[in-house]
Design a protein around this nucleic acid. Sequence first.
DNA 1: CGCCCCTTTGAACCTGATCAAACTGGGTGG
DNA 2: CCACCCAGTTTGATCAGGTTCAAAGGGGCG
Lengths: 257, 257
Amino acid sequence: MMQAVQFTSSPVTRFHEAPVLPLRPSRCSGCSMRGLCVPSGLDDSAMQRLDRIMTRRRVARGEVLFRMGESFTNLYAIRLGHFKTHQVSSEGMEQITGFQMAGELLGMDGIGADRHNCFAVALEDSEVCEIPFDQLEELFAEIPTLLRHFHRTMSQEITREQSNMLLLGNMHAEQRFASFLLNLSALYKARGYSSTSFQLRMSREDIGNYLGLTIESVSRLLSKFKKLEWINVDKREIQISDLPQLKLVAMQPTTSH
Amino acid sequence: MMQAVQFTSSPVTRFHEAPVLPLRPSRCSGCSMRGLCVPSGLDDSAMQRLDRIMTRRRVARGEVLFRMGESFTNLYAIRLGHFKTHQVSSEGMEQITGFQMAGELLGMDGIGADRHNCFAVALEDSEVCEIPFDQLEELFAEIPTLLRHFHRTMSQEITREQSNMLLLGNMHAEQRFASFLLNLSALYKARGYSSTSFQLRMSREDIGNYLGLTIESVSRLLSKFKKLEWINVDKREIQISDLPQLKLVAMQPTTSH
DNA sequence: CGCCCCTTTGAACCTGATCAAACTGGGTGG
DNA sequence: CCACCCAGTTTGATCAGGTTCAAAGGGGCG
């Protein structure tokens, strides 16, 4: 019931317990998320060169990793923990553009204008590898597979956002929420965690904002899905009890626009 | 009143008038959109190498440039004309993820999975430069500025889509539509066309789908904006008469979720 | 214990969807 | 040349999903 939950609370990684050690260098070779941020077939020498340019860094819950408007210098690979990214429009409208977990790359939106285009905030105590982008570019010339992998990653980011547009533009509240849960489920599964039992790292408000719904709607959906016994929720703890049913709901074609 | 409209109907480019000539090679040097798909400071030799791998290709109105699911081999730079890209979910929900015009790059979504992830359809008779991606990758190694530019382009694509998420997740119909018009306005301005008078290349249905609205809502908004004398519309011809007012409407903070 | 934040639940309201019908302009065939 | 058709669009009337406003219910922490 709790297997996927311990993510941040294993003794080694709790911030107030961890001894303050020099964290540099990062050592991809020892990272469980290697293979996600870095191509899988990377040889030792390449891995070492990569290690050399990265700095490991802790980010406390609620801390801002980078801000919209800030000049862009680094990419960040999440080693541990969860983040959210959000945009703020000139008039203060806010939109969460994504939730990211270990193995994902943050900051790619900043390349286009040498300036970050969103905020990245840690949803829990986390660890990232800070990668100076100019140094990464030099490595690209030396390690073609690394470049390839980077292109794939950026492209996947585009694809992911396009899917979100579909979700926001076409789906009803129920479908959006079911999709959201299924999405999380798949991500945890891909990382070796339970696909049916995990913790929501984000508040109801974050979920609502992300899905284009109010916090009240999210709450009602949680209650409804629970009453129908598709899921079980307690605070941020969630179990999916009827995955096939959720899939049905998510796919349910709208009478549509 | 018609300055921006002639886009496709100059004698040289009308399909049924143009003599069937060998179109290869593309010759970036003679392309007015050079500087958008390609970095501005590119020397002649680099430009030639680029020319050598590209094929110019015509795409008739309504023709599909690539399909979702199709294997990915080429990127496409739009030389002339307009396109739309759309996703179709497994259950047939459709979402237009973008409209693209001359100087923009199509197909970047395909890199991540070696498979196109959306459809690209010409909104009018158009011309593209077909760029085999594997050959482009080889050029990246030789022309670092080209690689840089490519990264910027992908990043901007990410940024654009994040903005669309904000639009779909946070804005009301009026704001969405005003933003849409302002967006087009800026794009035409950046290309040297009138920012206040242009042609909508897409149907009302396309606009509605893109903005997450029904066709009826789009039509009502057009009528409303016209009555308020913010714009003037006739069929697909549109003039913006009160740009500042549109900006106000687009920025109007919602009481918000 | 009591405060505060987050969440849940209820009731009324409103924006935009849905359903329906009329209108437009362009193309076709008689 | 006109009647007709058809797709795209506009406009009107009704409906409903999700928001808004309001209040109550936890749960964690000082």
